[in-house]
Design a binder for these strands. Structure first.
Lengths: 223, 223
DNA sequence: TCACTAATGTACGAACTAGTACGTTAGCTA
DNA sequence: TAGCTAACGTACTAGTTCGTACATTAGTGA
């Protein structure tokens, strides 16, 4: 998540009024607060109190609580898109490429629990903020293009047998990565196992890769 | 979910005062309201208005909003436990047994979207109500015992090669089933694909089974 | 340097919301 | 059938929460 800790660039004197900084600071704090308490549990006053500015500015820049949450979502999705764009697997064989992609997803989900919480919250509200966003419509994800290319190559070379398209494979990979973070509390409370235990991280990361590869390369009964 | 539509048993005259019926009716409506709006978004007044009783009775029987939500969770988890207890796969070979179990999980998740939403909500609140419940501690799940038996048999017979225990396999199966329902709104909005489209139901159900079997039976590099 | 506007702060209000004090009655039991 | 209590309803309050009217000032362009 883009943060605003650094006081602009060195040499540039910290101005008292800085619209960009104020907005970014509001977004940082709002991200934490919405992720912590959910949309209705989050308090606009609390967000304001934890910035260097006032509630007035939240309404000045974002218009209201709903639009603030939408802006928070837009930025959070932007971050994962950027990470996915860094992905370069064209030099790898399809099996290694898919494993690399799955591991990137795994790592990103683990490193951004706030993002997971925001997405969970947005689903409770039936994606109404995404629908109202404009910036966030059906713009897909860079990962999808990568998956498409890998799948094509994998099938061409005969390594992949599964009858699956890029979107479904993305869902399969995401489901494991997402669940592990999103449901860790209830899962831990009910089954006594912490899915995000650092000592088990490598285990689950391998498990994910094994699962995806096994699925894609399994011998299939006649289609 | 246990419902209270039927006016007791036929012949039994509907009494004006019926503690069990009132409590069940409150739980029914509260389940819907909490699932609809989240914990903080849910309104005690709204729950009361949609029952045949008043807010007073919610406090009389449950004590408060927190305890009401806990009671709602307890009942919802009870329902899935019951479903899992119906499961009888001892007569099936391990591969068929695991597929049957996965499909039962798939079906239950699809048929109980409110349950999924409640669990998502409880995770946003870090499972605090489960922790405070008593009824819901680390009591596991009937499905776990079934998985344990199938895994043992599968490994004994040499069919299963994966180094995975029952809890992790349960997580793998649940993640796909849960994500498909819990994240359908954001996934649909971002990728233009409805994961719960009835026309695709069989496709995803097969995909789940294929994935689990492929993972369990894949040829592994030397361990 | 001066005026203009974007950026900011203060103080407040209207509406909502969880929870409760108090009073009433249905239905069971002796 | 009388009386007792679990079950129920009404009306209210204290505290909260989103949002805004109004006043002020930093920084910039002419």
């Amino acid at each position: 998540m883009t943060s605003v800790e650094e006081p602009a660039r060195p040499g540039e004197r910290e101005r008292v009024r800085d619209a960009a900084r104020t907005q970014a600071e509001i977004l940082d704090v709002a991200t934490q607060e919405f992720a912590r308490a959910g949309y209705d549990g989050a308090r606009v006053d609390e967000i304001a109190a934890r910035t260097r500015t006032t509630k007035r500015m939240i309404y000045y820049y974002f218009g209201g609580k709903e639009q603030l949450f939408t802006a928070v979502l837009e930025r959070a999705y932007g971050v994962i898109r950027e990470a996915e764009q860094q992905l370069d697997v064209d030099h790898l064989d399809p099996v290694a490429a898919i494993r690399r992609l799955a591991e990137l997803t795994f790592d990103h989900h683990e490193q951004h629990p706030d993002f997971i919480r925001l997405v969970s919250i947005e689903n409770i509200h039936e994606a109404q903020h995404i629908a109202a966003s404009g910036k966030l419509g059906k713009i897909g994800s860079p990962a999808l293009d990568v998956i498409r290319r890998i799948l094509e190559e994998g099938r061409r070379s005969g390594l992949f047998t599964a009858d699956v398209d890029a979107v479904d494979l993305h869902a399969l990979i995401s489901s494991f990565c997402f669940f592990r973070v999103s449901n860790r509390h209830t899962f831990g409370a009910l089954f006594g196992r912490d899915l995000v235990d650092p000592a088990q991280r490598a285990h689950y990361r391998t498990m994910l890769g094994d699962m995806v590869i096994a699925y894609l390369t399994a011998e299939r009964a006649a289609d």
